[in-house]
Design a protein around this nucleic acid. Sequence first.
DNA 1: AATCATTATCGTAATATTGCAATAACACTA
DNA 2: TAGTGTTATTGCAATATTACGATAATGATT
Lengths: 109, 109
Amino acid sequence: MGATKTEHFTEKQNEIAKIAKALGHPARVAIVEYLIKVDTCICGDIVNELPLAQPTVSQHLKELKNAGLIKGSIEGNSICYCIEEKTIEKLQDYFAQISINLERKNNCC
Amino acid sequence: MGATKTEHFTEKQNEIAKIAKALGHPARVAIVEYLIKVDTCICGDIVNELPLAQPTVSQHLKELKNAGLIKGSIEGNSICYCIEEKTIEKLQDYFAQISINLERKNNCC
DNA sequence: AATCATTATCGTAATATTGCAATAACACTA
DNA sequence: TAGTGTTATTGCAATATTACGATAATGATT
């Protein structure tokens, strides 16, 4: 045991969980926020922005990429990372939809 | 090592990461969706809705409660669980803000 | 070609998560 | 109070995550 039973849940549920999980670490939240703050794709400067060692940052970037939250393209001797807007949008839509459904709720608690 | 270095990040980043982490498992996404779908607080019927054993569900509920996504109140011999709307709102606001910032971005990729 | 700068991968240790059987705790009911 | 139904806790095994030193890989610079 110890492995998540993904097969029992819907594709959408697994998708949301995957994206949420990628944002389930403050370093990765910080990376995403930084990419948005600098207002452009960033080439070779993410490691210095974080209080973590280079391999650790690299691993976090990999996970964000794997979840589709960022994309990276090789640019000379460094790598340009930027936000994958579609995925952020997907999350936003999801929570917006949830909020709409919540408003219809007859608050019983 | 192995423990997250929360002390190096902002309170907001840790807060968002904590909520996102709680949603980083399809079973917990399913629980939240179910609580919203039934359109009311639900008393003693969550275990049957999930393809997991009762102790596992109980643990997931505990984590959702710990992250502030749901709240439970004792109601006779079962427990009423419902969505903590404030927390969902917090997430929604966060992603809405991010999306606004993204729109201002000069898309370079 | 040698060096430098940047990022990725490997290997490893510490810790956390996932899942469940067994059991406990609790309130209701007969 | 014995029994029933519901939820929580404990204890454990399997797996995943987090972090980083060492090292490799890659492209640019000299």
